[in-house]
Design a protein around this nucleic acid. Structure first.
Lengths: 236, 236
DNA sequence: ACAAAAGTGTTTGGAGTACACCCATGA
DNA sequence: TCATGGGTGTACTCCAAACACTTTTGT
Protein backbone atom coordinates (compact mmCIF):
# COMPACT_ATOMS: atom_id res chain seq x y z
CA UNK A 1 0.00 0.00 0.00
CA UNK A 2 2.93 2.32 -0.45
CA UNK A 3 1.31 4.28 -3.27
CA UNK A 4 -1.91 4.93 -1.35
CA UNK A 5 -1.39 8.61 -0.78
CA UNK A 6 0.46 9.67 -3.86
CA UNK A 7 -1.44 11.87 -6.26
CA UNK A 8 -1.98 10.91 -9.87
CA UNK A 9 -1.33 14.41 -11.19
CA UNK A 10 -3.26 14.17 -14.47
CA UNK A 11 -6.84 13.56 -13.45
CA UNK A 12 -8.91 15.31 -10.83
CA UNK A 13 -12.43 15.02 -9.51
CA UNK A 14 -14.63 18.03 -8.78
CA UNK A 15 -17.89 17.92 -6.87
CA UNK A 16 -20.82 20.23 -7.38
CA UNK A 17 -22.57 19.93 -4.04
CA UNK A 18 -26.15 21.16 -3.98
CA UNK A 19 -28.17 22.06 -0.93
CA UNK A 20 -31.67 23.47 -0.43
CA UNK A 21 -32.35 26.02 2.31
CA UNK A 22 -36.13 26.02 1.98
CA UNK A 23 -36.15 28.73 -0.65
CA UNK A 24 -33.24 28.43 -3.01
CA UNK A 25 -30.72 26.01 -4.36
CA UNK A 26 -27.20 26.47 -3.00
CA UNK A 27 -23.78 25.22 -4.07
CA UNK A 28 -21.00 24.48 -1.65
CA UNK A 29 -17.88 26.40 -2.65
CA UNK A 30 -14.40 26.72 -1.23
CA UNK A 31 -12.76 30.04 -0.47
CA UNK A 32 -9.47 30.44 -2.24
CA UNK A 33 -6.82 33.11 -1.60
CA UNK A 34 -3.92 33.71 -3.90
CA UNK A 35 -1.08 36.08 -3.23
CA UNK A 36 0.48 37.46 -6.36
CA UNK A 37 2.88 40.43 -6.65
CA UNK A 38 2.34 41.39 -3.00
CA UNK A 39 -1.38 41.65 -3.65
CA UNK A 40 -3.89 39.02 -2.65
CA UNK A 41 -6.98 37.83 -4.46
CA UNK A 42 -9.96 35.94 -3.15
CA UNK A 43 -12.17 33.81 -5.23
CA UNK A 44 -13.95 30.49 -5.03
CA UNK A 45 -13.57 27.03 -6.38
CA UNK A 46 -15.36 23.74 -6.34
CA UNK A 47 -14.42 21.08 -3.81
CA UNK A 48 -12.06 18.85 -5.74
CA UNK A 49 -8.75 17.10 -5.74
CA UNK A 50 -6.37 15.14 -7.86
CA UNK A 51 -7.16 11.47 -7.64
CA UNK A 52 -4.72 9.25 -5.79
CA UNK A 53 -2.50 6.82 -7.66
CA UNK A 54 -4.61 3.87 -6.76
CA UNK A 55 -8.05 5.34 -6.27
CA UNK A 56 -11.21 4.87 -8.31
CA UNK A 57 -13.05 7.99 -9.44
CA UNK A 58 -16.12 7.45 -7.28
CA UNK A 59 -13.88 6.86 -4.28
CA UNK A 60 -12.05 10.11 -4.94
CA UNK A 61 -15.34 11.99 -4.98
CA UNK A 62 -16.39 10.45 -1.66
CA UNK A 63 -13.03 11.19 -0.14
CA UNK A 64 -13.18 14.83 -1.18
CA UNK A 65 -16.58 15.30 0.41
CA UNK A 66 -15.72 13.49 3.58
CA UNK A 67 -12.48 15.42 4.06
CA UNK A 68 -14.25 18.69 3.44
CA UNK A 69 -17.53 18.32 5.31
CA UNK A 70 -16.88 15.54 7.79
CA UNK A 71 -19.93 13.71 6.40
CA UNK A 72 -20.24 10.26 4.88
CA UNK A 73 -22.98 8.72 2.77
CA UNK A 74 -23.55 11.62 0.47
CA UNK A 75 -25.46 11.07 -2.75
CA UNK A 76 -23.01 11.30 -5.65
CA UNK A 77 -23.35 10.92 -9.38
CA UNK A 78 -20.71 11.35 -12.05
CA UNK A 79 -22.05 13.38 -14.95
CA UNK A 80 -19.27 14.58 -17.22
CA UNK A 81 -15.56 15.07 -17.76
CA UNK A 82 -13.92 18.31 -18.73
CA UNK A 83 -10.66 18.14 -20.60
CA UNK A 84 -10.19 21.28 -22.59
CA UNK A 85 -6.41 21.77 -22.68
CA UNK A 86 -6.94 25.43 -21.83
CA UNK A 87 -8.90 24.82 -18.65
CA UNK A 88 -5.66 25.01 -16.67
CA UNK A 89 -4.11 27.99 -18.41
CA UNK A 90 -4.91 30.96 -16.22
CA UNK A 91 -1.56 31.88 -14.53
CA UNK A 92 -3.37 32.49 -11.28
CA UNK A 93 -4.78 28.96 -11.32
CA UNK A 94 -1.43 27.42 -12.21
CA UNK A 95 0.32 29.34 -9.46
CA UNK A 96 -2.27 28.24 -6.95
CA UNK A 97 -2.04 24.60 -8.02
CA UNK A 98 1.72 24.48 -7.80
CA UNK A 99 1.77 26.17 -4.41
CA UNK A 100 -0.94 23.95 -3.02
CA UNK A 101 0.21 20.65 -4.43
CA UNK A 102 3.95 21.23 -4.44
CA UNK A 103 3.94 19.62 -7.87
CA UNK A 104 4.71 20.86 -11.33
CA UNK A 105 1.35 20.68 -13.07
CA UNK A 106 0.63 20.30 -16.77
CA UNK A 107 -2.73 19.48 -18.09
CA UNK A 108 -5.50 18.16 -15.83
CA UNK A 109 -8.63 16.39 -17.01
CA UNK A 110 -11.36 16.62 -14.41
CA UNK A 111 -14.26 14.28 -13.81
CA UNK A 112 -17.28 16.11 -12.43
CA UNK A 113 -19.78 14.78 -9.90
CA UNK A 114 -23.00 16.16 -8.57
CA UNK A 115 -23.61 15.66 -4.85
CA UNK A 116 -26.83 16.28 -2.95
CA UNK A 117 -26.82 17.18 0.72
CA UNK A 118 -29.50 17.73 3.34
CA UNK A 119 -28.63 21.26 4.31
CA UNK A 120 -29.44 20.59 7.96
CA UNK A 121 -26.64 18.04 8.28
CA UNK A 122 -23.87 19.39 10.46
CA UNK A 123 -21.24 20.35 7.98
CA UNK A 124 -17.81 21.25 9.19
CA UNK A 125 -17.31 24.49 7.25
CA UNK A 126 -13.77 24.98 8.49
CA UNK A 127 -12.19 21.66 7.77
CA UNK A 128 -8.43 21.11 7.96
CA UNK A 129 -8.58 21.21 4.17
CA UNK A 130 -10.43 24.38 3.38
CA UNK A 131 -13.02 26.94 4.33
CA UNK A 132 -16.29 26.37 2.57
CA UNK A 133 -19.75 27.90 2.47
CA UNK A 134 -23.01 27.86 0.59
CA UNK A 135 -23.59 30.19 -2.34
CA UNK A 136 -26.94 30.78 -3.93
CA UNK A 137 -27.01 29.53 -7.49
CA UNK A 138 -28.87 32.68 -8.51
CA UNK A 139 -25.74 34.65 -7.52
CA UNK A 140 -23.44 32.55 -9.67
CA UNK A 141 -22.76 35.20 -12.26
CA UNK A 142 -21.44 37.52 -9.56
CA UNK A 143 -18.98 34.99 -8.15
CA UNK A 144 -15.39 34.70 -9.33
CA UNK A 145 -14.66 31.07 -9.91
CA UNK A 146 -11.40 29.26 -10.56
CA UNK A 147 -10.65 27.24 -13.70
CA UNK A 148 -13.74 26.37 -15.70
CA UNK A 149 -15.74 25.81 -12.53
CA UNK A 150 -18.57 28.09 -13.59
CA UNK A 151 -19.24 25.86 -16.60
CA UNK A 152 -18.90 22.79 -14.46
CA UNK A 153 -21.54 24.07 -12.06
CA UNK A 154 -23.93 25.10 -14.82
CA UNK A 155 -23.70 21.70 -16.45
CA UNK A 156 -24.15 20.02 -13.10
CA UNK A 157 -27.27 22.04 -12.57
CA UNK A 158 -28.67 21.00 -15.93
CA UNK A 159 -27.76 17.43 -15.17
CA UNK A 160 -29.52 17.30 -11.84
CA UNK A 161 -32.57 19.05 -13.26
CA UNK A 162 -32.76 16.41 -15.88
CA UNK A 163 -32.14 13.62 -13.43
CA UNK A 164 -34.93 14.47 -11.00
CA UNK A 165 -37.43 14.54 -13.84
CA UNK A 166 -37.31 10.78 -14.08
CA UNK A 167 -36.06 9.99 -10.56
CA UNK A 168 -38.16 12.29 -8.39
CA UNK A 169 -37.06 10.48 -5.25
CA UNK A 170 -33.78 12.38 -5.56
CA UNK A 171 -35.59 15.33 -4.02
CA UNK A 172 -35.32 13.61 -0.68
CA UNK A 173 -31.57 13.80 -0.73
CA UNK A 174 -32.03 17.56 -0.38
CA UNK A 175 -34.83 17.69 2.18
CA UNK A 176 -34.65 17.21 5.95
CA UNK A 177 -35.68 13.78 7.23
CA UNK A 178 -39.15 15.09 8.04
CA UNK A 179 -40.57 17.66 5.69
CA UNK A 180 -43.81 19.33 4.75
CA UNK A 181 -45.57 19.12 1.43
CA UNK A 182 -44.77 22.73 0.69
CA UNK A 183 -41.07 22.24 1.29
CA UNK A 184 -41.20 19.44 -1.23
CA UNK A 185 -43.21 21.54 -3.66
CA UNK A 186 -40.95 24.56 -3.39
CA UNK A 187 -37.89 22.39 -3.94
CA UNK A 188 -39.57 20.78 -6.93
CA UNK A 189 -40.37 24.21 -8.35
CA UNK A 190 -36.91 25.64 -7.68
CA UNK A 191 -35.27 22.75 -9.49
CA UNK A 192 -37.70 22.61 -12.40
CA UNK A 193 -38.10 26.36 -12.64
CA UNK A 194 -41.88 25.97 -12.50
CA UNK A 195 -44.68 27.13 -10.25
CA UNK A 196 -46.88 24.17 -9.43
CA UNK A 197 -50.50 24.27 -8.49
CA UNK A 198 -50.82 23.16 -4.87
CA UNK A 199 -53.69 20.73 -5.45
CA UNK A 200 -52.22 19.14 -8.53
CA UNK A 201 -48.92 18.77 -6.75
CA UNK A 202 -50.52 16.96 -3.83
CA UNK A 203 -52.21 14.62 -6.26
CA UNK A 204 -48.94 13.87 -8.02
CA UNK A 205 -47.11 13.17 -4.78
CA UNK A 206 -49.94 10.96 -3.57
CA UNK A 207 -48.95 8.60 -6.40
CA UNK A 208 -45.40 8.33 -5.12
CA UNK A 209 -45.41 5.39 -2.75
CA UNK A 210 -42.12 6.45 -1.24
CA UNK A 211 -43.63 9.56 0.36
CA UNK A 212 -45.16 8.54 3.66
CA UNK A 213 -47.39 10.78 5.76
CA UNK A 214 -46.50 10.94 9.46
CA UNK A 215 -48.93 11.46 12.36
CA UNK A 216 -47.07 14.56 13.23
CA UNK A 217 -47.29 18.27 12.55
CA UNK A 218 -44.85 21.09 12.12
CA UNK A 219 -44.06 23.04 15.28
CA UNK A 220 -43.45 26.70 16.05
CA UNK A 221 -44.95 28.18 12.93
CA UNK A 222 -47.04 31.36 13.10
CA UNK A 223 -49.95 29.79 11.23
CA UNK A 224 -51.71 26.48 10.82
CA UNK A 225 -49.15 23.71 11.19
CA UNK A 226 -48.58 21.45 8.21
CA UNK A 227 -48.47 17.68 8.29
CA UNK A 228 -45.01 16.15 8.14
CA UNK A 229 -43.94 13.46 5.69
CA UNK A 230 -40.95 11.19 5.45
CA UNK A 231 -39.21 9.40 2.63
CA UNK A 232 -39.26 5.61 2.53
CA UNK A 233 -36.30 4.51 0.43
CA UNK A 234 -37.50 0.91 0.34
CA UNK A 235 -40.50 1.92 -1.74
CA UNK A 236 -38.58 3.57 -4.58
CA UNK B 1 2.58 23.45 -32.56
CA UNK B 2 5.40 21.09 -31.76
CA UNK B 3 3.36 19.14 -29.21
CA UNK B 4 0.47 18.50 -31.62
CA UNK B 5 1.11 14.81 -32.09
CA UNK B 6 2.44 13.78 -28.72
CA UNK B 7 0.19 11.57 -26.67
CA UNK B 8 -0.92 12.52 -23.20
CA UNK B 9 -0.47 9.02 -21.78
CA UNK B 10 -2.89 9.24 -18.86
CA UNK B 11 -6.26 9.81 -20.46
CA UNK B 12 -7.88 8.04 -23.38
CA UNK B 13 -11.14 8.32 -25.25
CA UNK B 14 -13.18 5.30 -26.33
CA UNK B 15 -16.08 5.38 -28.74
CA UNK B 16 -19.04 3.03 -28.71
CA UNK B 17 -20.23 3.35 -32.30
CA UNK B 18 -23.75 2.09 -32.94
CA UNK B 19 -25.23 1.21 -36.29
CA UNK B 20 -28.59 -0.23 -37.36
CA UNK B 21 -28.79 -2.76 -40.19
CA UNK B 22 -32.58 -2.80 -40.48
CA UNK B 23 -32.98 -5.53 -37.92
CA UNK B 24 -30.49 -5.23 -35.12
CA UNK B 25 -28.24 -2.82 -33.34
CA UNK B 26 -24.56 -3.21 -34.12
CA UNK B 27 -21.38 -1.96 -32.49
CA UNK B 28 -18.24 -1.17 -34.43
CA UNK B 29 -15.30 -3.07 -32.95
CA UNK B 30 -11.64 -3.33 -33.78
CA UNK B 31 -9.85 -6.63 -34.29
CA UNK B 32 -6.88 -6.99 -32.00
CA UNK B 33 -4.14 -9.63 -32.19
CA UNK B 34 -1.62 -10.23 -29.47
CA UNK B 35 1.32 -12.56 -29.67
CA UNK B 36 2.37 -13.95 -26.36
CA UNK B 37 4.70 -16.90 -25.71
CA UNK B 38 4.75 -17.85 -29.41
CA UNK B 39 0.99 -18.12 -29.38
CA UNK B 40 -1.33 -15.52 -30.74
CA UNK B 41 -4.70 -14.37 -29.45
CA UNK B 42 -7.45 -12.51 -31.23
CA UNK B 43 -10.01 -10.43 -29.52
CA UNK B 44 -11.77 -7.14 -30.01
CA UNK B 45 -11.65 -3.68 -28.56
CA UNK B 46 -13.43 -0.40 -28.89
CA UNK B 47 -12.12 2.28 -31.22
CA UNK B 48 -10.15 4.51 -28.92
CA UNK B 49 -6.88 6.29 -28.38
CA UNK B 50 -4.89 8.23 -25.89
CA UNK B 51 -5.67 11.91 -26.22
CA UNK B 52 -3.00 14.17 -27.65
CA UNK B 53 -1.10 16.60 -25.45
CA UNK B 54 -3.06 19.54 -26.68
CA UNK B 55 -6.36 18.04 -27.71
CA UNK B 56 -9.82 18.47 -26.22
CA UNK B 57 -11.80 15.33 -25.38
CA UNK B 58 -14.48 15.86 -28.01
CA UNK B 59 -11.79 16.48 -30.61
CA UNK B 60 -10.08 13.25 -29.68
CA UNK B 61 -13.32 11.35 -30.17
CA UNK B 62 -13.83 12.90 -33.61
CA UNK B 63 -10.26 12.19 -34.57
CA UNK B 64 -10.54 8.55 -33.58
CA UNK B 65 -13.64 8.06 -35.70
CA UNK B 66 -12.29 9.91 -38.69
CA UNK B 67 -9.01 8.02 -38.65
CA UNK B 68 -10.82 4.74 -38.35
CA UNK B 69 -13.76 5.10 -40.72
CA UNK B 70 -12.76 7.90 -43.04
CA UNK B 71 -16.01 9.68 -42.14
CA UNK B 72 -16.59 13.12 -40.67
CA UNK B 73 -19.65 14.60 -39.01
CA UNK B 74 -20.56 11.69 -36.85
CA UNK B 75 -22.96 12.18 -33.97
CA UNK B 76 -21.01 11.97 -30.73
CA UNK B 77 -21.93 12.31 -27.10
CA UNK B 78 -19.76 11.89 -24.04
CA UNK B 79 -21.52 9.83 -21.41
CA UNK B 80 -19.14 8.66 -18.71
CA UNK B 81 -15.55 8.23 -17.58
CA UNK B 82 -14.07 4.98 -16.36
CA UNK B 83 -11.16 5.21 -14.00
CA UNK B 84 -10.98 2.05 -11.96
CA UNK B 85 -7.25 1.62 -11.25
CA UNK B 86 -7.61 -2.05 -12.20
CA UNK B 87 -9.04 -1.44 -15.64
CA UNK B 88 -5.55 -1.63 -17.10
CA UNK B 89 -4.25 -4.60 -15.15
CA UNK B 90 -4.65 -7.57 -17.46
CA UNK B 91 -1.07 -8.43 -18.57
CA UNK B 92 -2.33 -9.05 -22.09
CA UNK B 93 -3.74 -5.55 -22.27
CA UNK B 94 -0.60 -3.99 -20.82
CA UNK B 95 1.59 -5.87 -23.27
CA UNK B 96 -0.58 -4.79 -26.17
CA UNK B 97 -0.57 -1.15 -25.06
CA UNK B 98 3.17 -0.98 -24.66
CA UNK B 99 3.81 -2.65 -27.99
CA UNK B 100 1.33 -0.47 -29.81
CA UNK B 101 2.18 2.84 -28.23
CA UNK B 102 5.89 2.29 -27.60
CA UNK B 103 5.31 3.88 -24.23
CA UNK B 104 5.53 2.66 -20.68
CA UNK B 105 1.92 2.77 -19.52
CA UNK B 106 0.62 3.15 -15.99
CA UNK B 107 -2.93 3.92 -15.20
CA UNK B 108 -5.31 5.23 -17.87
CA UNK B 109 -8.60 6.96 -17.22
CA UNK B 110 -10.86 6.71 -20.23
CA UNK B 111 -13.64 9.02 -21.29
CA UNK B 112 -16.38 7.16 -23.15
CA UNK B 113 -18.45 8.48 -26.04
CA UNK B 114 -21.41 7.09 -27.88
CA UNK B 115 -21.42 7.61 -31.64
CA UNK B 116 -24.30 6.97 -34.03
CA UNK B 117 -23.69 6.11 -37.66
CA UNK B 118 -25.92 5.57 -40.65
CA UNK B 119 -24.86 2.06 -41.52
CA UNK B 120 -25.10 2.76 -45.26
CA UNK B 121 -22.28 5.32 -45.11
CA UNK B 122 -19.19 4.02 -46.82
CA UNK B 123 -16.99 3.04 -43.95
CA UNK B 124 -13.39 2.17 -44.57
CA UNK B 125 -13.18 -1.07 -42.63
CA UNK B 126 -9.48 -1.52 -43.28
CA UNK B 127 -8.05 1.81 -42.30
CA UNK B 128 -4.32 2.41 -41.87
CA UNK B 129 -5.07 2.27 -38.15
CA UNK B 130 -7.02 -0.92 -37.70
CA UNK B 131 -9.38 -3.49 -39.07
CA UNK B 132 -12.91 -2.96 -37.85
CA UNK B 133 -16.30 -4.53 -38.32
CA UNK B 134 -19.84 -4.53 -37.00
CA UNK B 135 -20.84 -6.90 -34.21
CA UNK B 136 -24.41 -7.54 -33.19
CA UNK B 137 -25.07 -6.33 -29.68
CA UNK B 138 -27.03 -9.50 -29.01
CA UNK B 139 -23.77 -11.41 -29.50
CA UNK B 140 -21.87 -9.33 -26.97
CA UNK B 141 -21.59 -11.99 -24.31
CA UNK B 142 -19.82 -14.26 -26.80
CA UNK B 143 -17.18 -11.69 -27.76
CA UNK B 144 -13.85 -11.37 -25.99
CA UNK B 145 -13.26 -7.74 -25.29
CA UNK B 146 -10.16 -5.91 -24.11
CA UNK B 147 -9.93 -3.92 -20.86
CA UNK B 148 -13.33 -3.06 -19.38
CA UNK B 149 -14.80 -2.53 -22.82
CA UNK B 150 -17.75 -4.83 -22.25
CA UNK B 151 -18.91 -2.62 -19.39
CA UNK B 152 -18.24 0.46 -21.44
CA UNK B 153 -20.46 -0.84 -24.24
CA UNK B 154 -23.25 -1.91 -21.90
CA UNK B 155 -23.31 1.48 -20.24
CA UNK B 156 -23.23 3.17 -23.62
CA UNK B 157 -26.21 1.13 -24.66
CA UNK B 158 -28.13 2.11 -21.55
CA UNK B 159 -27.15 5.69 -22.12
CA UNK B 160 -28.37 5.83 -25.70
CA UNK B 161 -31.59 4.05 -24.78
CA UNK B 162 -32.23 6.65 -22.19
CA UNK B 163 -31.23 9.46 -24.50
CA UNK B 164 -33.62 8.62 -27.35
CA UNK B 165 -36.52 8.46 -24.94
CA UNK B 166 -36.48 12.22 -24.64
CA UNK B 167 -34.69 13.07 -27.90
CA UNK B 168 -36.39 10.76 -30.40
CA UNK B 169 -34.84 12.64 -33.31
CA UNK B 170 -31.61 10.77 -32.49
CA UNK B 171 -33.13 7.81 -34.35
CA UNK B 172 -32.34 9.58 -37.58
CA UNK B 173 -28.63 9.43 -36.95
CA UNK B 174 -29.01 5.67 -37.39
CA UNK B 175 -31.36 5.55 -40.38
CA UNK B 176 -30.57 6.10 -44.05
CA UNK B 177 -31.43 9.53 -45.42
CA UNK B 178 -34.72 8.21 -46.79
CA UNK B 179 -36.47 5.60 -44.73
CA UNK B 180 -39.81 3.87 -44.35
CA UNK B 181 -42.08 3.99 -41.37
CA UNK B 182 -41.36 0.37 -40.54
CA UNK B 183 -37.62 0.93 -40.57
CA UNK B 184 -38.19 3.69 -38.04
CA UNK B 185 -40.53 1.52 -36.03
CA UNK B 186 -38.21 -1.47 -35.95
CA UNK B 187 -35.31 0.73 -34.87
CA UNK B 188 -37.48 2.28 -32.19
CA UNK B 189 -38.44 -1.17 -30.96
CA UNK B 190 -34.93 -2.55 -31.06
CA UNK B 191 -33.62 0.34 -28.99
CA UNK B 192 -36.48 0.42 -26.52
CA UNK B 193 -36.87 -3.34 -26.36
CA UNK B 194 -40.58 -2.99 -27.13
CA UNK B 195 -42.97 -4.18 -29.81
CA UNK B 196 -45.04 -1.24 -30.96
CA UNK B 197 -48.47 -1.40 -32.48
CA UNK B 198 -48.21 -0.24 -36.09
CA UNK B 199 -51.15 2.16 -35.97
CA UNK B 200 -50.24 3.69 -32.66
CA UNK B 201 -46.71 4.15 -33.84
CA UNK B 202 -47.84 6.03 -36.95
CA UNK B 203 -49.91 8.31 -34.76
CA UNK B 204 -46.98 9.04 -32.49
CA UNK B 205 -44.67 9.83 -35.38
CA UNK B 206 -47.30 12.05 -36.98
CA UNK B 207 -46.80 14.36 -34.00
CA UNK B 208 -43.08 14.69 -34.69
CA UNK B 209 -42.77 17.69 -36.98
CA UNK B 210 -39.26 16.67 -37.97
CA UNK B 211 -40.44 13.58 -39.84
CA UNK B 212 -41.44 14.65 -43.33
CA UNK B 213 -43.27 12.41 -45.80
CA UNK B 214 -41.80 12.31 -49.30
CA UNK B 215 -43.72 11.83 -52.57
CA UNK B 216 -41.71 8.75 -53.18
CA UNK B 217 -41.97 5.03 -52.61
CA UNK B 218 -39.57 2.25 -51.82
CA UNK B 219 -38.23 0.35 -54.83
CA UNK B 220 -37.45 -3.29 -55.54
CA UNK B 221 -39.41 -4.84 -52.74
CA UNK B 222 -41.39 -8.06 -53.28
CA UNK B 223 -44.62 -6.54 -51.94
CA UNK B 224 -46.47 -3.28 -51.79
CA UNK B 225 -43.92 -0.45 -51.68
CA UNK B 226 -43.87 1.71 -48.59
CA UNK B 227 -43.82 5.48 -48.56
CA UNK B 228 -40.46 7.11 -47.83
CA UNK B 229 -39.84 9.77 -45.23
CA UNK B 230 -36.97 12.06 -44.45
CA UNK B 231 -35.73 13.82 -41.38
CA UNK B 232 -35.84 17.61 -41.22
CA UNK B 233 -33.26 18.71 -38.68
CA UNK B 234 -34.51 22.30 -38.73
CA UNK B 235 -37.80 21.20 -37.17
CA UNK B 236 -36.30 19.54 -34.09
C1' DA C 1 -60.65 39.66 14.04
C1' DC C 2 -57.15 39.17 11.00
C1' DA C 3 -53.05 37.42 8.74
C1' DA C 4 -50.83 33.43 6.97
C1' DA C 5 -50.53 29.28 5.11
C1' DA C 6 -52.87 24.42 5.02
C1' DG C 7 -55.92 21.50 2.92
C1' DT C 8 -59.21 19.75 -0.36
C1' DG C 9 -62.48 17.97 -5.86
C1' DT C 10 -64.15 18.50 -10.26
C1' DT C 11 -63.82 19.21 -15.06
C1' DT C 12 -61.47 19.09 -19.44
C1' DG C 13 -58.23 17.97 -23.10
C1' DG C 14 -54.44 15.27 -24.84
C1' DA C 15 -51.70 11.11 -25.03
C1' DG C 16 -51.13 6.31 -24.85
C1' DT C 17 -53.12 1.69 -25.57
C1' DA C 18 -55.87 -2.01 -27.43
C1' DC C 19 -57.68 -3.84 -31.33
C1' DA C 20 -58.94 -5.90 -37.14
C1' DC C 21 -59.52 -5.33 -41.76
C1' DC C 22 -58.67 -4.07 -46.70
C1' DC C 23 -54.95 -2.70 -50.17
C1' DA C 24 -51.05 -2.90 -53.48
C1' DT C 25 -47.48 -5.42 -55.49
C1' DG C 26 -44.52 -9.10 -57.31
C1' DA C 27 -43.93 -13.90 -57.87
C1' DT D 1 -54.30 -16.25 -56.82
C1' DC D 2 -51.45 -16.04 -53.18
C1' DA D 3 -47.99 -14.36 -50.03
C1' DT D 4 -46.07 -10.34 -48.07
C1' DG D 5 -46.06 -6.40 -45.83
C1' DG D 6 -48.48 -1.42 -46.21
C1' DG D 7 -51.84 1.48 -44.58
C1' DT D 8 -55.76 3.09 -41.89
C1' DG D 9 -59.92 4.60 -37.30
C1' DT D 10 -62.37 4.14 -33.00
C1' DA D 11 -63.10 3.55 -28.14
C1' DC D 12 -61.19 3.59 -23.53
C1' DT D 13 -58.17 4.91 -19.85
C1' DC D 14 -55.06 7.64 -17.52
C1' DC D 15 -52.56 11.72 -16.55
C1' DA D 16 -51.83 16.70 -16.54
C1' DA D 17 -53.74 21.17 -16.11
C1' DA D 18 -56.94 24.73 -14.80
C1' DC D 19 -59.36 26.57 -11.21
C1' DA D 20 -61.51 28.78 -5.55
C1' DC D 21 -63.00 28.26 -1.18
C1' DT D 22 -62.87 26.75 3.75
C1' DT D 23 -59.94 25.53 7.85
C1' DT D 24 -56.58 26.08 11.39
C1' DT D 25 -53.57 28.57 14.24
C1' DG D 26 -50.92 32.39 16.34
C1' DT D 27 -50.82 37.24 17.15
Amino acid sequence: MSSENIYYPHVSVDCVVFGFDGENLKVLLIERSISENNASYNDKKLPGSLILENEDLDDAASRILTELTGLKNIYLSQYRSFGNPDRVKNPRDILWLEKTLQLKIGRIVTVAYVALIKIDRKIQFNSPIAKSNWSDIKELKKINLAFDHKDVILEGLQYIRHRVSFEPHLFFELLPRKFTMSQLRILHDVINQTKSDVRNFQKKVAQWPWVVALDELEKDVPHRAARLYKFDRKKT
